[in-house]
Write a protein that binds this DNA or RNA. Structure first.
Lengths: 217, 217
DNA sequence: AGTTTGAATATTGTTGACAATATTCATCTT
DNA sequence: AAGATGAATATTGTCAACAATATTCAAACT
Protein backbone atom coordinates (compact mmCIF):
# COMPACT_ATOMS: atom_id res chain seq x y z
CA UNK A 1 0.00 0.00 0.00
CA UNK A 2 1.11 3.55 -0.66
CA UNK A 3 2.07 5.90 2.16
CA UNK A 4 -1.37 7.45 2.41
CA UNK A 5 -3.64 6.46 5.28
CA UNK A 6 -7.20 7.44 6.09
CA UNK A 7 -8.13 8.84 9.49
CA UNK A 8 -9.71 6.45 11.91
CA UNK A 9 -13.49 6.71 11.59
CA UNK A 10 -14.44 8.24 14.92
CA UNK A 11 -16.84 5.75 16.37
CA UNK A 12 -18.37 7.97 18.98
CA UNK A 13 -21.62 6.77 20.45
CA UNK A 14 -24.69 8.89 20.78
CA UNK A 15 -24.47 8.84 24.56
CA UNK A 16 -20.98 10.32 24.35
CA UNK A 17 -22.17 13.09 22.07
CA UNK A 18 -25.04 13.77 24.44
CA UNK A 19 -22.66 13.75 27.41
CA UNK A 20 -20.39 16.26 25.70
CA UNK A 21 -23.26 18.54 24.71
CA UNK A 22 -24.74 18.66 28.20
CA UNK A 23 -21.31 19.16 29.74
CA UNK A 24 -20.61 22.05 27.39
CA UNK A 25 -23.93 23.66 28.17
CA UNK A 26 -23.03 23.56 31.85
CA UNK A 27 -19.48 24.83 31.37
CA UNK A 28 -20.55 27.71 29.12
CA UNK A 29 -23.13 28.73 31.67
CA UNK A 30 -26.12 28.04 29.44
CA UNK A 31 -27.23 25.63 32.15
CA UNK A 32 -26.76 27.34 35.49
CA UNK A 33 -26.20 25.68 38.87
CA UNK A 34 -29.48 24.51 40.30
CA UNK A 35 -31.41 24.41 37.06
CA UNK A 36 -33.42 21.29 36.45
CA UNK A 37 -32.84 18.87 33.58
CA UNK A 38 -35.84 17.11 32.12
CA UNK A 39 -34.94 14.00 30.11
CA UNK A 40 -37.80 14.45 27.67
CA UNK A 41 -36.97 18.09 26.91
CA UNK A 42 -33.33 17.31 26.20
CA UNK A 43 -34.25 14.26 24.14
CA UNK A 44 -36.64 16.27 21.98
CA UNK A 45 -34.22 19.16 21.56
CA UNK A 46 -31.44 16.80 20.50
CA UNK A 47 -33.74 14.60 18.45
CA UNK A 48 -32.80 11.36 20.21
CA UNK A 49 -34.52 8.99 22.59
CA UNK A 50 -34.23 9.09 26.35
CA UNK A 51 -31.92 6.08 26.63
CA UNK A 52 -28.65 7.81 25.76
CA UNK A 53 -29.73 10.87 27.79
CA UNK A 54 -30.16 8.76 30.90
CA UNK A 55 -26.76 7.13 30.47
CA UNK A 56 -25.17 10.53 29.96
CA UNK A 57 -26.77 11.72 33.18
CA UNK A 58 -25.22 8.82 35.11
CA UNK A 59 -21.85 9.77 33.65
CA UNK A 60 -22.10 13.49 34.44
CA UNK A 61 -23.32 12.66 37.93
CA UNK A 62 -19.98 10.98 38.55
CA UNK A 63 -18.13 13.95 37.11
CA UNK A 64 -19.79 16.00 39.81
CA UNK A 65 -21.67 18.21 37.38
CA UNK A 66 -25.15 16.80 37.94
CA UNK A 67 -27.08 15.62 40.97
CA UNK A 68 -29.91 13.19 40.41
CA UNK A 69 -32.66 12.49 42.91
CA UNK A 70 -34.27 9.12 42.14
CA UNK A 71 -37.82 9.26 40.82
CA UNK A 72 -37.70 13.05 41.17
CA UNK A 73 -35.31 15.21 39.20
CA UNK A 74 -31.76 15.94 38.24
CA UNK A 75 -30.21 19.37 38.67
CA UNK A 76 -26.93 21.06 37.81
CA UNK A 77 -24.52 20.88 40.75
CA UNK A 78 -23.06 23.81 42.60
CA UNK A 79 -19.42 23.83 43.70
CA UNK A 80 -18.30 25.99 46.60
CA UNK A 81 -15.00 27.85 46.76
CA UNK A 82 -13.94 25.92 49.85
CA UNK A 83 -14.44 22.60 48.15
CA UNK A 84 -12.27 23.63 45.21
CA UNK A 85 -9.60 25.15 47.41
CA UNK A 86 -9.44 22.57 50.19
CA UNK A 87 -10.34 19.37 48.36
CA UNK A 88 -10.13 19.41 44.58
CA UNK A 89 -6.92 21.43 44.16
CA UNK A 90 -4.97 19.41 46.78
CA UNK A 91 -6.04 16.20 45.07
CA UNK A 92 -4.89 17.61 41.75
CA UNK A 93 -1.52 18.46 43.29
CA UNK A 94 -1.18 14.91 44.56
CA UNK A 95 -1.84 13.52 41.12
CA UNK A 96 0.64 15.90 39.52
CA UNK A 97 3.31 15.16 42.08
CA UNK A 98 2.85 11.44 41.46
CA UNK A 99 3.12 11.96 37.71
CA UNK A 100 6.17 14.19 37.97
CA UNK A 101 8.00 11.76 40.23
CA UNK A 102 7.26 8.84 37.99
CA UNK A 103 7.58 10.44 34.57
CA UNK A 104 10.22 13.15 35.03
CA UNK A 105 12.50 11.23 32.66
CA UNK A 106 9.91 11.58 29.91
CA UNK A 107 9.92 15.36 30.18
CA UNK A 108 12.40 15.99 27.41
CA UNK A 109 13.10 19.29 25.65
CA UNK A 110 10.20 18.88 23.26
CA UNK A 111 7.80 18.29 26.14
CA UNK A 112 9.04 21.35 28.00
CA UNK A 113 8.70 23.37 24.80
CA UNK A 114 5.12 22.18 24.49
CA UNK A 115 4.33 23.44 27.98
CA UNK A 116 6.21 26.69 27.28
CA UNK A 117 3.98 27.28 24.29
CA UNK A 118 0.92 26.97 26.51
CA UNK A 119 2.32 29.45 29.03
CA UNK A 120 3.15 31.86 26.19
CA UNK A 121 -0.43 31.71 25.02
CA UNK A 122 -1.53 32.33 28.61
CA UNK A 123 0.58 35.48 28.70
CA UNK A 124 -1.08 36.68 25.52
CA UNK A 125 -4.57 35.95 26.82
CA UNK A 126 -3.80 37.77 30.04
CA UNK A 127 -2.65 40.86 28.11
CA UNK A 128 -5.71 40.81 25.90
CA UNK A 129 -8.06 40.13 28.79
CA UNK A 130 -9.37 36.88 27.30
CA UNK A 131 -10.20 35.28 30.59
CA UNK A 132 -12.22 32.31 29.32
CA UNK A 133 -9.30 31.24 27.16
CA UNK A 134 -6.95 31.73 30.09
CA UNK A 135 -8.95 29.16 32.07
CA UNK A 136 -8.82 26.71 29.18
CA UNK A 137 -5.06 27.08 28.85
CA UNK A 138 -4.65 26.64 32.59
CA UNK A 139 -6.56 23.36 32.34
CA UNK A 140 -4.60 22.34 29.26
CA UNK A 141 -1.30 22.89 31.06
CA UNK A 142 -2.26 20.56 33.87
CA UNK A 143 -3.90 18.05 31.58
CA UNK A 144 -0.72 17.85 29.52
CA UNK A 145 1.20 16.92 32.65
CA UNK A 146 -1.38 14.39 33.80
CA UNK A 147 -1.54 12.74 30.40
CA UNK A 148 1.99 11.45 30.83
CA UNK A 149 0.53 8.87 33.19
CA UNK A 150 -0.64 5.50 31.98
CA UNK A 151 -2.15 4.62 35.37
CA UNK A 152 -5.89 4.35 34.93
CA UNK A 153 -6.54 5.59 38.47
CA UNK A 154 -4.68 8.85 37.80
CA UNK A 155 -6.62 9.61 34.64
CA UNK A 156 -9.92 8.61 36.23
CA UNK A 157 -9.46 10.74 39.30
CA UNK A 158 -8.27 13.62 37.17
CA UNK A 159 -11.37 13.45 35.02
CA UNK A 160 -13.63 13.32 38.04
CA UNK A 161 -12.28 16.62 39.36
CA UNK A 162 -11.34 18.33 36.08
CA UNK A 163 -14.69 19.76 35.12
CA UNK A 164 -15.73 20.74 38.60
CA UNK A 165 -12.53 22.75 38.86
CA UNK A 166 -13.04 24.17 35.38
CA UNK A 167 -16.59 25.23 36.21
CA UNK A 168 -15.36 26.99 39.32
CA UNK A 169 -12.66 28.92 37.49
CA UNK A 170 -14.92 29.84 34.59
CA UNK A 171 -17.36 31.33 37.05
CA UNK A 172 -14.80 33.03 39.28
CA UNK A 173 -11.79 33.81 37.09
CA UNK A 174 -12.35 37.56 37.29
CA UNK A 175 -11.84 37.42 41.07
CA UNK A 176 -8.41 35.87 40.69
CA UNK A 177 -5.23 37.77 40.09
CA UNK A 178 -4.63 36.56 36.51
CA UNK A 179 -1.13 37.93 36.51
CA UNK A 180 -0.13 35.62 39.36
CA UNK A 181 -1.72 32.62 37.63
CA UNK A 182 0.46 33.06 34.55
CA UNK A 183 3.60 33.66 36.59
CA UNK A 184 2.99 30.61 38.80
CA UNK A 185 2.83 28.39 35.74
CA UNK A 186 6.02 29.86 34.31
CA UNK A 187 7.82 29.28 37.59
CA UNK A 188 6.62 25.69 37.85
CA UNK A 189 7.66 25.08 34.27
CA UNK A 190 11.13 26.48 34.87
CA UNK A 191 11.59 24.18 37.83
CA UNK A 192 10.33 21.21 35.84
CA UNK A 193 12.96 22.01 33.21
CA UNK A 194 15.63 22.07 35.92
CA UNK A 195 14.56 18.58 37.10
CA UNK A 196 15.31 19.49 40.71
CA UNK A 197 12.67 17.47 42.58
CA UNK A 198 12.92 19.32 45.89
CA UNK A 199 12.40 22.62 44.20
CA UNK A 200 9.50 21.24 42.15
CA UNK A 201 7.74 19.91 45.23
CA UNK A 202 8.19 23.25 46.95
CA UNK A 203 6.70 25.05 43.99
CA UNK A 204 3.76 22.62 43.77
CA UNK A 205 2.97 23.24 47.41
CA UNK A 206 3.06 26.97 46.81
CA UNK A 207 0.94 26.57 43.68
CA UNK A 208 -1.56 24.62 45.73
CA UNK A 209 -2.01 27.52 48.09
CA UNK A 210 -2.08 29.87 45.10
CA UNK A 211 -5.62 30.73 46.10
CA UNK A 212 -4.12 33.25 48.47
CA UNK A 213 -4.35 35.50 45.46
CA UNK A 214 -8.09 35.12 45.76
CA UNK A 215 -9.68 38.47 46.41
CA UNK A 216 -12.29 37.40 48.93
CA UNK A 217 -11.43 34.49 51.17
CA UNK B 1 -51.43 10.95 65.59
CA UNK B 2 -49.95 8.55 68.08
CA UNK B 3 -46.20 8.32 68.64
CA UNK B 4 -45.77 5.37 66.33
CA UNK B 5 -44.32 5.93 62.86
CA UNK B 6 -43.75 3.54 59.97
CA UNK B 7 -40.36 3.20 58.36
CA UNK B 8 -39.84 5.04 55.15
CA UNK B 9 -40.66 2.73 52.26
CA UNK B 10 -37.27 2.24 50.66
CA UNK B 11 -37.76 3.44 47.14
CA UNK B 12 -34.71 1.89 45.60
CA UNK B 13 -34.69 1.73 41.84
CA UNK B 14 -33.90 -1.36 39.86
CA UNK B 15 -30.71 0.15 38.51
CA UNK B 16 -29.48 0.68 42.08
CA UNK B 17 -30.23 -2.91 42.99
CA UNK B 18 -28.41 -4.05 39.88
CA UNK B 19 -25.48 -1.77 40.67
CA UNK B 20 -25.24 -3.19 44.19
CA UNK B 21 -25.46 -6.78 42.99
CA UNK B 22 -22.73 -6.38 40.39
CA UNK B 23 -20.55 -4.48 42.85
CA UNK B 24 -20.94 -7.24 45.42
CA UNK B 25 -20.09 -9.90 42.89
CA UNK B 26 -16.86 -8.04 42.14
CA UNK B 27 -15.97 -7.42 45.78
CA UNK B 28 -16.62 -11.02 46.81
CA UNK B 29 -14.44 -12.23 43.99
CA UNK B 30 -17.21 -13.99 42.10
CA UNK B 31 -16.35 -11.69 39.23
CA UNK B 32 -12.58 -11.59 38.89
CA UNK B 33 -10.47 -8.80 37.41
CA UNK B 34 -10.45 -9.02 33.66
CA UNK B 35 -13.59 -11.10 33.30
CA UNK B 36 -16.04 -9.89 30.72
CA UNK B 37 -19.56 -8.71 31.48
CA UNK B 38 -22.25 -9.37 28.90
CA UNK B 39 -25.33 -7.22 29.34
CA UNK B 40 -27.70 -9.88 28.08
CA UNK B 41 -26.35 -12.59 30.38
CA UNK B 42 -26.67 -10.38 33.45
CA UNK B 43 -30.11 -9.20 32.40
CA UNK B 44 -31.37 -12.75 31.99
CA UNK B 45 -29.82 -13.96 35.24
CA UNK B 46 -31.39 -11.07 37.16
CA UNK B 47 -34.65 -11.24 35.27
CA UNK B 48 -34.62 -7.59 34.18
CA UNK B 49 -34.13 -5.78 30.91
CA UNK B 50 -30.85 -4.35 29.68
CA UNK B 51 -31.71 -0.71 30.41
CA UNK B 52 -30.97 -0.74 34.15
CA UNK B 53 -27.92 -2.94 33.54
CA UNK B 54 -26.45 -0.39 31.17
CA UNK B 55 -27.00 2.45 33.62
CA UNK B 56 -25.43 0.39 36.40
CA UNK B 57 -22.40 -0.17 34.19
CA UNK B 58 -21.96 3.57 33.70
CA UNK B 59 -22.08 4.01 37.45
CA UNK B 60 -19.59 1.25 38.26
CA UNK B 61 -17.30 2.54 35.54
CA UNK B 62 -17.01 5.76 37.50
CA UNK B 63 -16.37 3.84 40.70
CA UNK B 64 -13.36 2.39 38.97
CA UNK B 65 -14.64 -1.18 39.15
CA UNK B 66 -15.54 -1.63 35.49
CA UNK B 67 -13.93 -0.58 32.21
CA UNK B 68 -16.17 -0.30 29.19
CA UNK B 69 -14.92 -0.25 25.61
CA UNK B 70 -17.57 1.31 23.35
CA UNK B 71 -19.25 -1.09 20.94
CA UNK B 72 -17.02 -3.88 22.26
CA UNK B 73 -17.15 -5.06 25.83
CA UNK B 74 -16.96 -4.18 29.49
CA UNK B 75 -14.56 -5.94 31.84
CA UNK B 76 -13.83 -5.92 35.56
CA UNK B 77 -10.99 -3.50 36.36
CA UNK B 78 -7.68 -4.42 37.89
CA UNK B 79 -6.06 -2.20 40.51
CA UNK B 80 -2.32 -2.29 41.05
CA UNK B 81 -0.63 -2.04 44.43
CA UNK B 82 1.19 1.11 43.37
CA UNK B 83 -2.02 2.86 42.46
CA UNK B 84 -3.55 2.10 45.83
CA UNK B 85 -0.42 3.05 47.75
CA UNK B 86 0.64 6.14 45.82
CA UNK B 87 -2.70 7.55 44.65
CA UNK B 88 -5.81 6.25 46.38
CA UNK B 89 -4.53 6.15 49.97
CA UNK B 90 -2.98 9.66 49.83
CA UNK B 91 -6.25 11.02 48.48
CA UNK B 92 -8.11 9.31 51.30
CA UNK B 93 -5.74 10.89 53.78
CA UNK B 94 -6.40 14.30 52.30
CA UNK B 95 -10.13 13.82 52.65
CA UNK B 96 -9.80 12.64 56.24
CA UNK B 97 -7.52 15.48 57.19
CA UNK B 98 -10.00 17.95 55.73
CA UNK B 99 -12.86 16.35 57.65
CA UNK B 100 -10.92 16.22 60.91
CA UNK B 101 -9.90 19.86 60.67
CA UNK B 102 -13.40 20.99 59.91
CA UNK B 103 -15.40 18.66 62.15
CA UNK B 104 -13.14 18.04 65.14
CA UNK B 105 -15.66 19.85 67.33
CA UNK B 106 -18.32 17.28 66.40
CA UNK B 107 -16.17 14.42 67.64
CA UNK B 108 -17.71 14.19 71.09
CA UNK B 109 -17.38 11.32 73.56
CA UNK B 110 -20.15 9.32 71.95
CA UNK B 111 -18.49 9.60 68.54
CA UNK B 112 -15.13 8.49 69.92
CA UNK B 113 -16.87 5.60 71.66
CA UNK B 114 -18.42 4.59 68.35
CA UNK B 115 -14.98 4.44 66.72
CA UNK B 116 -13.57 2.60 69.74
CA UNK B 117 -16.23 -0.05 69.29
CA UNK B 118 -15.09 -0.56 65.70
CA UNK B 119 -11.45 -0.90 66.76
CA UNK B 120 -12.46 -3.38 69.46
CA UNK B 121 -14.21 -5.49 66.87
CA UNK B 122 -11.09 -5.24 64.71
CA UNK B 123 -9.02 -6.62 67.58
CA UNK B 124 -11.42 -9.53 67.88
CA UNK B 125 -11.33 -10.27 64.16
CA UNK B 126 -7.57 -10.15 64.18
CA UNK B 127 -7.43 -12.69 67.03
CA UNK B 128 -9.89 -14.98 65.30
CA UNK B 129 -8.23 -14.60 61.92
CA UNK B 130 -11.38 -13.26 60.26
CA UNK B 131 -9.56 -11.25 57.64
CA UNK B 132 -12.53 -10.38 55.39
CA UNK B 133 -14.33 -8.84 58.35
CA UNK B 134 -11.17 -6.99 59.32
CA UNK B 135 -11.18 -5.28 55.93
CA UNK B 136 -14.83 -4.33 56.32
CA UNK B 137 -14.20 -2.84 59.76
CA UNK B 138 -11.19 -0.94 58.43
CA UNK B 139 -13.42 0.59 55.75
CA UNK B 140 -16.17 1.28 58.29
CA UNK B 141 -13.74 3.14 60.54
CA UNK B 142 -12.73 5.51 57.76
CA UNK B 143 -16.24 5.82 56.41
CA UNK B 144 -17.47 6.85 59.85
CA UNK B 145 -14.94 9.67 59.86
CA UNK B 146 -15.75 10.76 56.32
CA UNK B 147 -19.48 10.76 56.97
CA UNK B 148 -19.10 13.71 59.30
CA UNK B 149 -18.69 15.85 56.20
CA UNK B 150 -21.64 17.47 54.50
CA UNK B 151 -19.53 18.62 51.55
CA UNK B 152 -20.74 16.77 48.47
CA UNK B 153 -17.26 16.75 46.94
CA UNK B 154 -15.83 14.89 49.93
CA UNK B 155 -18.47 12.18 49.85
CA UNK B 156 -18.27 11.87 46.08
CA UNK B 157 -14.51 11.52 45.98
CA UNK B 158 -14.63 9.10 48.87
CA UNK B 159 -17.13 6.89 47.08
CA UNK B 160 -15.06 6.94 43.91
CA UNK B 161 -12.03 5.49 45.70
CA UNK B 162 -13.75 3.45 48.41
CA UNK B 163 -14.48 0.30 46.48
CA UNK B 164 -11.24 0.25 44.56
CA UNK B 165 -9.40 0.38 47.87
CA UNK B 166 -11.71 -2.24 49.34
CA UNK B 167 -11.13 -4.56 46.40
CA UNK B 168 -7.38 -4.20 46.81
CA UNK B 169 -7.45 -5.01 50.52
CA UNK B 170 -9.87 -7.91 50.10
CA UNK B 171 -7.49 -9.44 47.60
CA UNK B 172 -4.28 -8.69 49.48
CA UNK B 173 -5.16 -8.56 53.18
CA UNK B 174 -3.19 -11.70 53.96
CA UNK B 175 0.01 -9.99 52.80
CA UNK B 176 -0.44 -7.17 55.29
CA UNK B 177 0.61 -7.28 58.89
CA UNK B 178 -2.89 -7.32 60.41
CA UNK B 179 -1.55 -6.62 63.84
CA UNK B 180 -0.12 -3.28 62.71
CA UNK B 181 -3.38 -2.36 61.01
CA UNK B 182 -5.35 -2.70 64.25
CA UNK B 183 -2.73 -0.86 66.29
CA UNK B 184 -2.51 2.00 63.79
CA UNK B 185 -6.23 2.59 64.08
CA UNK B 186 -6.10 2.55 67.87
CA UNK B 187 -3.28 5.08 67.86
CA UNK B 188 -5.10 7.39 65.46
CA UNK B 189 -8.25 7.10 67.57
CA UNK B 190 -6.38 7.98 70.75
CA UNK B 191 -4.95 11.06 69.11
CA UNK B 192 -8.35 12.06 67.79
CA UNK B 193 -9.66 11.83 71.35
CA UNK B 194 -6.84 14.08 72.52
CA UNK B 195 -7.83 16.70 69.91
CA UNK B 196 -4.19 17.66 69.39
CA UNK B 197 -4.14 18.58 65.70
CA UNK B 198 -0.36 18.43 65.24
CA UNK B 199 -0.21 14.97 66.65
CA UNK B 200 -3.19 13.85 64.55
CA UNK B 201 -1.59 15.11 61.35
CA UNK B 202 1.64 13.34 62.23
CA UNK B 203 -0.25 10.09 62.80
CA UNK B 204 -2.21 10.45 59.55
CA UNK B 205 1.02 10.86 57.64
CA UNK B 206 2.40 7.76 59.28
CA UNK B 207 -0.82 5.89 58.62
CA UNK B 208 -0.54 6.89 54.99
CA UNK B 209 2.80 5.21 54.70
CA UNK B 210 1.47 2.24 56.67
CA UNK B 211 2.07 0.11 53.63
CA UNK B 212 5.63 -0.24 54.82
CA UNK B 213 4.20 -3.22 56.61
CA UNK B 214 3.57 -4.68 53.19
CA UNK B 215 5.53 -7.86 52.73
CA UNK B 216 6.58 -7.40 49.13
CA UNK B 217 7.15 -3.89 47.92
C1' DA C 1 -59.09 29.91 56.18
C1' DG C 2 -56.76 25.75 56.55
C1' DT C 3 -56.52 20.68 55.69
C1' DT C 4 -57.48 16.42 53.46
C1' DT C 5 -58.64 13.83 49.48
C1' DG C 6 -58.25 12.12 44.99
C1' DA C 7 -58.28 12.81 39.95
C1' DA C 8 -55.37 14.77 36.29
C1' DT C 9 -50.86 15.69 34.75
C1' DA C 10 -45.88 15.53 34.47
C1' DT C 11 -41.74 13.10 34.95
C1' DT C 12 -38.73 9.33 35.79
C1' DG C 13 -38.11 4.14 35.54
C1' DT C 14 -38.39 -0.15 32.75
C1' DT C 15 -39.18 -2.99 28.89
C1' DG C 16 -38.83 -5.56 24.40
C1' DA C 17 -37.92 -4.86 19.65
C1' DC C 18 -34.91 -3.19 16.20
C1' DA C 19 -30.29 -1.07 14.42
C1' DA C 20 -25.37 -0.71 14.27
C1' DT C 21 -21.05 -2.61 15.17
C1' DA C 22 -17.73 -6.25 16.26
C1' DT C 23 -16.31 -11.11 16.07
C1' DT C 24 -16.06 -15.68 14.31
C1' DC C 25 -15.26 -18.88 10.91
C1' DA C 26 -15.74 -21.22 6.58
C1' DT C 27 -14.37 -20.25 1.87
C1' DC C 28 -11.62 -18.50 -1.71
C1' DT C 29 -7.27 -16.77 -3.66
C1' DT C 30 -2.43 -16.66 -4.20
C1' DA D 1 0.09 -22.55 4.07
C1' DA D 2 -0.93 -17.59 4.61
C1' DG D 3 -3.77 -14.08 3.95
C1' DA D 4 -8.19 -11.89 2.12
C1' DT D 5 -13.21 -12.03 1.71
C1' DG D 6 -17.77 -12.18 3.20
C1' DA D 7 -21.78 -14.56 5.38
C1' DA D 8 -23.38 -15.90 9.97
C1' DT D 9 -23.45 -14.90 14.70
C1' DA D 10 -22.88 -12.38 18.97
C1' DT D 11 -22.97 -8.21 21.34
C1' DT D 12 -23.61 -3.45 22.18
C1' DG D 13 -26.31 0.84 20.92
C1' DT D 14 -30.85 3.14 20.21
C1' DC D 15 -35.69 3.63 20.11
C1' DA D 16 -40.71 4.10 21.23
C1' DA D 17 -44.25 2.36 24.17
C1' DC D 18 -45.68 1.30 28.71
C1' DA D 19 -45.31 1.30 34.07
C1' DA D 20 -44.37 3.46 38.40
C1' DT D 21 -43.81 7.41 41.03
C1' DA D 22 -44.15 12.33 42.10
C1' DT D 23 -46.51 16.78 41.64
C1' DT D 24 -50.30 19.84 40.90
C1' DC D 25 -54.63 21.51 41.82
C1' DA D 26 -59.51 21.67 42.33
C1' DA D 27 -63.18 19.92 45.26
C1' DA D 28 -64.81 18.49 49.73
C1' DC D 29 -64.55 18.77 54.55
C1' DT D 30 -63.63 20.82 59.16
Amino acid sequence: MAGFTFDQQSNISLREKVTNDIRNAILTGELQSGSRLKEMDIAEQMGVSRGPIREAIRQLEREGLLISYPYRETVVADITIDEVKDILIPIRMHLEWFVIQRYIHQMDDSFIAQLQQIVDRMTLCFKEGKLEQLVELDMLFHETLINLAVERTVLMTWRSILNQTRLHFIKNIRYYSNDTIVQDHQTLLDKLASKDMDSILEELQHHMKGDESFLFS
